[in-house]
């Protein structure tokens, strides 16, 4: 099992700081990297994988800088980028063989591994079809298959469920959940429910900074007492939306059921509600905005 440490990591593109002073240590388990679009998740993951050089700071794997480890670090790594590139005219089988060749896997090992992975992601029947005929979900599944070819001990998945329907999302979650036991899985998303059931630890980013790093239960505790449920007449909704953060809004006959994130009671008839991870996520983001 490995340990990856990010220390004072910064990345600046021209005048924009995409990642600011990120310091975190990852050991085995599933880490959910949450944040809005543009929070710096993809940049952080690219630096984590050694694709982008940080402007300052260091990334150490078991005490060694990853840039010095070179091929040895890449042998431990499996990566699924957000914009997953592939040759459209390649068949699924040829593409996986190509990726196995890039990862310098012995032929015999690669052949067996590809069969296993096609079975795991449910694409055995489509192995000889060209990738241009695949749906979005199938492409993502090929993506996860190629990331697992070298049986990586560090798996990095950037928005792996984007564009997937709910059924495929659940399937994906189950695959990832089973992988997290003896490896580091870093999984980024802006959809909280993706990580709610599988992540042991949550990393929350906002404007390039890591505003929270810890386990999900502690994150929930942060929002304890700040989540309210209330039923209000429809005309009052805009005023409440202006004043408070509304995490859910549901029409209920002539009224509207609101789920409000607030330290103070938003309405006389508001009742405290049990905080869900999404509530905690919104609460922490909003808290940082206030600061």
């Amino acid at each position: 099992m490995h340990r990856v440490e990010l220390a004072d990591l910064n990345k600046t593109f021209k005048n924009k700081a995409a990642v600011k002073d990120v310091t975190v240590c990852l050991e085995h388990g599933v880490y959910g990297l949450l944040g809005e679009n543009g929070a710096g998740k993809t940049t952080l993951m690219r630096m984590f994988c050694g694709i982008l050089e940080p402007t300052s700071g260091s990334i150490l794997c078991d005490g060694m800088p990853i840039r010095q480890m070179g091929g040895d670090y890449h042998m431990l790594l499996g990566y699924l980028p957000q914009e997953f590139g592939y040759y459209k005219d390649f068949t699924a089988l040829r593409f996986l063989n190509y990726m196995a060749a890039l990862k310098a896997l012995p032929e015999e090992y690669a052949r067996n591994r590809i069969e296993e992975l096609l079975e795991l992601v449910g694409l055995q029947a489509d192995r000889k079809n060209k990738l241009k005929t695949f749906s979005g979900g199938m492409i993502r599944r090929i993506g996860i298959a190629q990331a697992l070819l070298n049986d990586p001990e560090i798996l990095v998945l950037d928005e792996p469920t984007s564009g997937l329907d709910p059924g495929e999302r659940v399937r994906f979650r189950n695959i990832i959940s089973s992988l997290g036991k003896n490896r580091i899985v870093l999984l980024s998303t802006h959809i909280v429910s993706d990580v709610e059931y599988i992540a042991d630890n949550i990393l929350l980013m906002k404007d390039g900074r890591l505003i929270y790093a810890g386990d999900a239960s502690r994150m929930l505790a942060e929002a304890e007492g700040c989540v309210w449920k209330c039923l209000v007449p429809e005309p009052e909704v805009p005023a409440l939306e202006q004043q408070y953060m509304i995490s859910n809004l549901r029409p209920h006959a002539s009224q509207v059921e609101l789920r409000v994130i607030s330290r103070i009671k938003p309405a006389p008839n508001a009742e405290p509600a049990e905080a869900a991870l999404e509530d905690a996520y919104l609460y922490l983001l909003n808290k940082m905005a206030e600061v």
């Binding site: 690219r46 994988c49 050694g50 694709i51 091929g71 890449h74 042998m75 790594l77 499996g78 990566y79 980028p81 914009e83 997953f84 590139g85 592939y86 040759y87 990726m99 060749a101 890039l102 990862k103 310098a104 190629q146």
Partner: peptide
């Protein structure tokens, strides 16, 4: 410049 290059950078043959 295709997405495959980003993926390729994390492989042994970079």
């Amino acid at each position: 410049l295709t997405g495959i290059a980003e993926l390729g950078k994390t492989c042994f043959f970079h």
